[in-house]
């Protein structure tokens, strides 16, 4: 029924499939198991931070606005901020995982002429006009029941 050549390809296909599955499951589960090797412990939260996070009692929604596509299209200097963005994103992700479900993080790339861009403008995030239509945003908005605050990272 299945000759040896088909069997070979079948095995390989199954292998690829199970590899993908294993990688996905494993990486999702093991994400928290990490060691920070940087000199200044850039990627580890301090005790103070952790205790503040654990004392949060009402849900807060964090929205990180970063124009990644605009940055990638821009100059080298602009692209350099991608690293900082990754660092900020990592930091915020750590905050949310330590916050016992009170913090949620949403990362938004406000493309031109989208509702996300309008929201970004409405929150008052500082914008930089790169070209006629592309704008560059890098800011954080924190929102809870009583109101919103925004923090300009750049």
């Amino acid at each position: 029924m299945i000759n040896s050549k088909n069997e070979k390809y079948l095995k390989i296909f199954l292998g690829l499939f199970s590899m993908t599955l294993m990688i996905y499951i494993g990486t999702t589960l093991l994400k928290r198991a990490r060691v920070d090797f940087t000199q200044e412990n850039l990627y580890t939260l301090s005790k103070g931070t952790k205790s503040i996070l654990s004392k949060l009692d009402s849900p807060i929604k964090l929205k990180l606005y970063y124009s990644k596509t605009a940055a990638n299209k821009g100059t080298e200097g602009l692209r350099a901020f991608n690293n900082h963005f990754l660092y900020v994103q990592d930091l915020l992700r750590q905050y949310t995982s330590h916050s016992r479900n009170n913090l949620t993080l949403e990362v938004i790339d406000p493309r031109p002429d989208t509702p996300e861009e309008e929201d970004a403008l409405a929150y008052g995030l500082k914008k930089f006009n790169l070209t006629e239509t592309e704008r560059y945003f890098f800011g954080l908005v924190a929102e809870n029941e009583s109101g919103t605050e925004n923090y300009r990272i750049f």
Binding site: M22, I23, A33, R34, V35, Y43
Partner: peptide, 18 residues
């Protein structure tokens, strides 16, 4: 970037193995 996570090791190990 300075953080070594088990998920990274797992990825490379599984990739190489398969």
């Amino acid at each position: 970037r300075g953080v070594f996570s088990l998920s990274n090791l797992w990825f490379f190990a599984v990739t190489i193995f398969f």
